[in-house]
């Protein structure tokens, strides 16, 4: 996605129309990020609002020479979601409470629900593991960057990734029930 330089410039000048245009451009991407990182999606709007406010308020610190605006906004949103997850700790999450998930039967439904299953498994994963897994596998950050985002050591990021992988192996029957049945 290309965002015009003029649009960024107008947003830096606090132009409301330009801000709304940028908001509409970024919203689909950031919704996906929030949906994936936030453990309790009932706070989706809170996370998005907080993220967009941060983005617009700190827009002047964004340097186009150092990267794309979308990547910068995504990183802010990820941080917002991780912080929100921390604040929500201790409260029962939807992921924990909705223990059962429906086995897909129809082939079309399977295609649609496949993404849902993957997402649910990702959210059932312990928060530390899922954060590193999301950042490394899906969003392509390296361990050094992950360490900065999560305020941990790179070595710990590697450890968490390997544990996330083990966790996924344990839960493979949930993800691929048919393959497990074949093994048996």
């Amino acid at each position: 996605m290309h965002i015009e330089e003029a649009l960024i410039h107008s947003c830096k000048k606090n132009d409301a129309k330009a801000q709304k245009r940028l908001y509409m451009l970024l919203l689909p991407y950031l919704r996906a990020i929030v949906n994936r990182y936030l453990r309790d999606t009932s706070y989706e709007k809170d996370a998005l609002q907080e993220s967009f406010v941060k983005i617009f308020k700190t827009m002047n610190s964004f340097d186009q020479q150092k990267g794309e605006l979308k990547s910068w906004a995504v990183r802010i949103t990820i941080n917002t979601c991780l912080n929100l997850n921390k604040r929500l700790i201790g409260q029962p999450t939807e992921a924990l409470e909705s223990a059962e998930y429906v086995q897909p039967t129809e082939s079309k439904a399977q295609a649609v629900d496949r993404k849902g299953i993957l997402l649910k498994v990702l959210k059932d994963m312990p928060p530390d593991y899922s954060a590193v897994f999301n950042l490394f596998v899906i969003d392509g950050y390296d361990h050094q960057e992950i360490a900065e985002i999560l305020s941990i050591e790179p070595a710990l990021s590697r450890k968490r990734l390997s544990r996330a992988r083990v966790w996924l192996r344990w839960n493979e029957p949930t993800i691929n029930p048919s393959s497990m049945a074949k093994k048996k």
Binding site: R31, A32, R36, K115, L118, I138, E172
Partner: peptide, 14 residues
């Protein structure tokens, strides 16, 4: 499995 995660969620739009 990780490839599948990456393909389905990377640069995803809702």
């Amino acid at each position: 499995l990780e490839e599948e995660y990456k393909n389905k969620f990377s640069d995803e739009q809702l």
